[in-house]
Design a protein around this nucleic acid. Structure first.
Length: 848
RNA sequence: GCGGGCGUGAUGGAAUGGUAGACAUAUCAGACUUAAAAUCUGAAGGGCGUACGCCCGUGUGGGUUCGAGUCCCACCGCCCGCACCA
């Protein structure tokens, strides 16, 4: 008897796959193509279990599709620009480029032992000049097509480090290094005109039927289409040029409940007042403290400042409302000005209470409701309410009807127009950082902002930069900025902002179809391989990455870099869960938590016998030390065990908890299968046995169940079926021929998950060629149906008995048989059934 | 704050509106062994009962249905996203 030695087996089969180039993707008209893609990793330096899970899922699909006769494209690359490389350079010295490429080679070396079916010849990193140079070409084409423009936008500014901060670098309103209170500051920045495509991006969601409904819903809400009324209040005592304040409201039916007008601190009127009045300037400065995230703005204390300016109510010009500057109003949405209706908006209610403004209800639950409110009355728009201060439509109508009637009324009376707006803002791509793709434009004193010439691309990042001080090193570089104006030829200066790393990840899937081309894409390759048939990644990318990629696919189509029909680049999307682990913690002498690695804890104790506190499972993170290094697992048990376990214990869309016992159990199971193969291989080839038909029937059921499981991402359920079938085979007394067929089929069904073990079993049993390229087994339909069926019988919905009847017995017969059952008769106790429900093949319910 | 999701034994989870707890872990018992490990066999949601069986049970409270873990409403808890993290 031989032993299961994964280290030896896995190296051998990986070499065989590589030698035969079985995963190399080549265009071919003979087979249907299938493009499977997992979201590419950031090269942090170590692969983690989340990567193993993500890439194993993609690999299962890729290998399954390969064996069902598809021409599979399954590539891998690196999302390699970004802040961690700069942070590492600042923290430990070294250069972001070296750090990144070293990490890539480390991670590639850690990934290869997993035995993924990847075409490594297509590998690239987004920080390769060859990639980002093509990205610069795309940018220039987008610019020419009017898909890019410049405008002012607000950033987080650290006044001590004198640098722009990412939202992530703002901790409780302070800069993460300096600890200084963060301020908002305006800079001129580049933007993609994604908002021009709002309606399209929204409307096309309906066609993404193979996307999770929740992702589509999240994108729909993010785009945020709304219909409302835009109109102007005329002002009293306002500065010149501000005799009107335009506001947008989604609830024009509450217009008679208006008790104030609020404008953003960034509103043009606020800016004019700020210039001349110290009190306004002080208030606006106060509003600009804190981070720029919507969360920070929404959760900050609501502050208002009465400007003294008044506006006239459009319905009754003698009715005047105060104009406040308020810190919770976003300049980016609507017109940057609102009217406040405290009765029907909780935020306005709190604001009105704080500043002593009237609270005027415009609708109430019913005619006899009390008009004095203790909180805002905000019913669903579909709910029927009584309009006590309605001005359009019926007194009793839903919010939606009220809104429509109000817009009609206002338009008819010349007070504004009904307009459709979107919450989606244009995508700011400028970053004041070194380690990103340089934006290929030049600033010329005579010509202004001039696009670089394509023949001057790529604009390469300089290597000699100083990252020891905060801020953008490109700005401080002695010579890199100096260039000639592409238009007039006079000395000019390069743009020093680089692109958001989301740009890099918005077209890499298209680049994989022609990864080494000297144009961004090659039409024939894109036409053949696009779209991605199955995209797999984390739910955290549900909005931004996926929306940006959808926009980019459209922009690339418009600029001729992708063929028609690729506007939605991902045909199917799957969002997988995280890998979690318990956290082991002790306390130091000051009571602060000290974390311990799982490998240092046995039975809840450290090596010295100290008991650890066990904190329930959480996302694996270095800081909590609840990490298991895949490399350790692979060297202890092999890649097949790691792959099997990450798929086995939880549904793929949910989190999976890594447990040492689970990993060990996976290994034991694979050993069992190996031993089973060994035993069958040693059988007398002419041996006859009993139960051949039962074994083969179970095998066909297993083929059916596992195939369905893989196709529907039910990997954990598929694995459960494989466990059950292995047990059946182990106990089987069938003859050699049937057992050999069973073990070879079992190996095939396991091969997407545990490809190395499967290859070895296949070879051991004398299978032809590689199991990887062998055709997927087909379930024989005739073997799946059985002659009899066992039906549970319920009385009033409670299970009381079961009967076994022929599968094709007519309903009436089943009903008779059920009512004749002893246990049923006893339960009925003479009562006459009112109704009998027979669901063929499922259940019988007797109602009394 | 806003948007989205999730909640089932000791644990991870299974279950086209149709027998809740498949499969696995941990636990217990048995076989093998001088013993342990490994391996194999079996038990097992809670309660009552000698047993046939009965009652309760999918976060909480309601509702729809012949029938609800699954659909609807409200609440509680946890997780993800919020536009410069990737």
């Amino acid at each position: 008897m031989t032993r299961y030695t994964p280290a030896e087996i896995e190296a051998r089969w990986q070499a065989a796959w590589s030698r035969d180039e079985v995963f190399k993707a080549v265009r071919s008209a003979d087979k249907p193509k299938y493009y499977v893609l997992e979201m590419f990793p950031y090269p942090s330096g170590r692969i983690h279990m989340g990567h193993v899970r993500n890439y194993t899922m993609g690999d299962v699909i890729a290998r399954y599709k390969l064996s069902t006769g598809h021409n599979v494209l399954h590539p891998m690359g690196w999302d390699a620009f970004g802040m961690p490389a700069e942070n590492a350079a600042m923290a430990i010295g070294g250069h972001p480029k070296d750090w990144t490429y070293d990490n890539i080679s480390d991670m590639r070396a850690q990934m290869k032992p997993l035995g993924l079916s990847i075409d490594w010849s297509r590998e690239f990193a987004t920080c390769d000049v060859a990639y980002y140079g093509q990205q610069q070409a795309l940018f220039l084409d987008f610019l020419e097509a009017g898909l890019v423009y410049r405008k002012n936008a607000v950033v987080n500014w650290d006044p001590v480090d004198m640098t722009v901060l990412a939202n992530e670098q703002v901790e409780q309103g302070r800069g993460w290094r300096s600890g200084a209170l963060v301020e908002r500051r305006e800079l001129t920045q580049w933007f993609f005109k994604i908002s021009d495509h709002s309606e399209e991006l929204l409307e096309a969601l309906d066609r993404l039927v193979n996307w999770p409904a929740k992702v589509r819903l999240m994108q729909e809400n993010w785009i945020g289409k709304s219909r409302g009324l835009q109109f102007a209040f005329s002002t009293i005592d306002a500065p010149d040029g501000h005799d009107r304040i335009e506001v947008y409201t989604t609830r024009p039916d509450t217009l008679l409940g208006a008790s104030f007008v609020g404008i953003s601190p960034d509103h043009p009127l606020a800016k004019v007042l700020e210039r001349d009045r110290e009190d306004v300037a002080a208030f606006c400065a106060e509003c600009r403290k804190g981070g720029t995230t919507e969360e920070a703005i929404e959760t900050a204390e609501k502050l208002g400042f009465d400007t003294g300016i008044r506006v006239r109510h459009p319905f009754d010009t003698s009715h005047e409302l105060p104009v406040y500057i308020a810190n919770f109003i976003l300049m980016d949405y609507g017109t940057g000005a609102i009217f406040g209706c405290p009765a029907h908006d909780q935020r306005d209610f709190e604001f009105a209470t704080k500043y002593g403004l009237p609270i005027i209800a415009t609708y109430l639950p019913s005619e006899d409701s009390d008009e004095t409110l203790t909180e805002a009355y905000v019913p669903a728009k579909t709910e029927k309410v009584f309009y006590n201060r309605g001005f359009a439509g019926e007194p009793h109508q839903t919010g939606l009807e009220g809104i429509d009637a109000a817009i009609d009324f206002c338009e008819a009376n010349g007070i504004g127009q009904g307009v459709t707006k979107y919450r989606l803002r244009d995508w700011g791509l400028s970053r004041q950082r070194y380690w990103g793709c340089p934006i290929p434009v030049v600033h010329c004193e005579a010509c202004g902002v001039v696009p670089e010439k394509k023949e001057n691309l790529p604009i390469e990042l300089p290597y000699d930069v100083d990252l020891s001080v905060p801020g953008n090193p490109l700005d401080r570089h002695p010579t890199w900025r100096d260039t000639a104006c592409p238009s007039c030829g006079k000395p000019a200066r390069r743009e020093t902002d680089t692109m958001d790393t989301f740009v890099d990840s918005s077209w890499y899937f298209a680049r994989f179809t022609a990864p080494h081309a000297d144009t961004p894409t090659v039409m024939e390759d894109a036409a053949y391989w696009m779209n991605v048939d199955q995209y797999i990644g984390g739910i955290e990318h549900a909005i931004l990455h996926l929306l940006y990629s959808r926009f980019f696919a459209r922009a690339m189509r418009i600029t001729g870099h992708l063929p028609q029909g690729t506007e939605e680049p991902f045909d199917a999307l799957f969002t997988q869960g995280m890998v979690t682990h318990e956290i082991y913690q002790t306390r130091d002498d000051k009571g602060r938590p000290v974390y311990h690695l799982p490998e240092d804890v046995t039975d809840g104790k450290l090596a010295d016998g100290t008991e650890v506190e066990i904190i329930p499972s959480a996302k694996m993170s270095k800081s909590k030390k609840n990490v298991v290094d895949p490399i350790n697992i692979i060297s202890a048990y092999g890649a097949d065990t790691a792959r099997w376990f990450v798929l086995s214990d939880s549904p793929p869309e949910r989190d999976v908890e890594w447990t040492a016992s689970g990993a060990e159990a996976a290994f034991k199971h694979l050993t069992r299968v190996w031993n089973l193969c060994d035993r069958i291989g040693a059988m007398d080839k002419s041996a006859q046995g009993t139960g051949d038909a039962e074994l083969l029937r179970a095998m066909h059921v297993c083929i059916h169940d596992v195939t369905m499981g893989i196709e529907s991402f039910g990997f954990n359920a598929a694995i459960a079926k494989l466990y059950a079938f292995t047990a059946t085979l182990q106990k089987s007394k069938a003859g050699y021929t049937a057992q050999r067929e069973a073990i070879m089929t079992l190996a095939q069904l396991m091969s997407p998950m545990t490809p190395h073990l499967a290859e070895d079993i296949w070879a051991h049993q004398g299978g032809e060629g590689l199991i990887t390229t062998a055709p997927w087994p087909k379930a024989d339909e005739a073997m799946l149906v059985s002659d009899t069926v066992t039906l549970p019988i319920q009385v009033n919905g409670k299970r009381r008995a079961e009967i076994t009847v022929p599968a094709d017995m007519p309903k009436e017969e089943v009903e008779k048989a059920a009512l004749a059952d002893q246990a049923v008769l006893r339960t009925l106790d003479g009562a006459a059934p009112k109704k009998v429900i027979v669901v063929p093949g499922r259940i019988v319910n007797v109602v009394v």
